[in-house]
């Protein structure tokens, strides 16, 4: 008996140590999610009501112009931001990997924006893109009287300004991930390619890029997560404007929760976001667990 007691005590201690995480699992991950989904199926407005209305909130949601604009903005933003930041990040990593001078300095320059917040990023670019004093004015001062660069105040172009700022913020992170991937590639592959007389660009396109699947996956997941969370940047840079031209789903939820007092519609929007993320991330997590299981079997 005596020999077992310390084991029992340790067992108990393990449960005690895990209790905060278990509480978060039950209360937040399961409890709050269920609660949000439930509210989205009721007629709640300012206060939660238990009046079940099925999918009526979702009908209202997708008939709401602000929501459909938000969703299409997120699709445009997400596609352009992912492509641009992955491409720029990869090119920067390849360029830095050519044994260039001042490598450390360049890496610091490319990555520093990522350490700053989206609020700071948004406010800087709001100022630089400002048509009165910003880039447009520089063009005019250079003598091009008709020079125009007023995207940030144009409804059809403002979303690209958000993309621009977000790429500035995140491309350095992609560069850092890609550079680690490039440095992990066996020197022998380069030697073999050189013996075969392959031009450098062919080696990158046909051999190196296919070998960097893990780096691309990591970078893509990080970028995709920040796309869904896109909120601060829109608030700080344009506050959703001009009009509703740069609204995004996360902002729709927050505004309807705390300003417009329509929690039924807000939770329906939040649930729609969750479903979208699950549809995208679910297969990825499944693929990863399969890969891990396969790796464990060997």
């Amino acid at each position: 008996m005596l020999a077992i007691r310390p084991r029992l005590a340790s067992r108990l201690a393990a449960w005690v140590a895990l209790s905060p995480a278990l509480a978060v699992l039950v209360v937040v991950y399961i409890g709050c999610t269920t609660w949000t989904i439930w509210i989205s199926m009721t007629a709640s407005r300012m206060l939660p009501s238990s009046n079940f209305v099925g999918l009526r909130q979702y009908e209202a949601l997708f008939a709401n112009e602000r929501w459909t604009v938000s969703v299409s903005n997120l699709v445009i933003f997400g596609t352009m931001f992912m492509i641009a930041s992955l491409a720029l990040g990869f090119l920067l990593a390849v360029a830095i990997d050519q044994r260039v001078r001042a490598e450390n300095l360049l890496r610091s320059i490319f990555l520093y924006p990522f350490s700053m917040s989206f609020v700071v990023t948004g406010l800087v670019w709001q100022w630089v893109l400002n048509p009165t004093f910003g880039i447009e004015r520089i063009g005019k001062n250079l003598g091009f009287a008709d020079f125009k660069f007023d995207w940030i105040v144009r409804q059809d172009m403002v979303i690209y300004c958000l993309v621009f700022a977000a790429v500035w913020h995140a491309a350095g992170l992609v560069m850092a991930i890609m550079l680690a991937g490039l440095r992990g590639i066996d020197e022998d592959i380069w030697k073999a390619a050189r013996v075969d007389g392959l031009p450098t660009w062919r080696v990158y396109v046909s051999i190196v890029v296919p070998m960097m699947g893990a780096s691309f996956a990591t970078a893509s997941v990080l970028m995709a997560t920040s796309v869904v969370r896109l909120y601060d940047l829109s608030v700080a840079m344009t506050n959703g404007g001009p009009g509703i031209a740069s609204e995004v789903p996360a902002k729709f939820v927050m505004d309807h929760l705390f300003e417009r007092q329509n929690i039924g519609l807000a939770t329906a929007a939040a649930t729609s976001m969750l479903i979208t993320v699950a549809a995208v991330v679910g297969p990825f997590l499944y693929w990863q667990s399969r890969r891990r299981a396969a790796a464990g079997a060997h």
């Binding site: 393990a14 449960w15 895990l18 995480a21 278990l22 699992l25 937040v28 991950y29 409890g31 709050c32 999610t33 609660w35 949000t36 509210i39 997941v221 997560t225 869904v228 969370r229 789903p249 996360a250 939820v253 927050m254 929760l257 929690i263 807000a266 939770t267 929007a269 939040a270 649930t271 976001m273 969750l274 993320v277 991330v281 997590l285």
Partner: peptide, 25 residues
């Protein structure tokens, strides 16, 4: 610990979930 697998899986999954789903509750 018996629930370790579930707990770890949940933590990994939730890292992707938008905050908006938890905020009101």
């Amino acid at each position: 610990v018996p629930v370790a697998g579930i707990l770890f899986g949940a933590l990994m999954t939730v890292a992707f979930v938008p905050y908006q789903i938890f905020i009101y509750p």
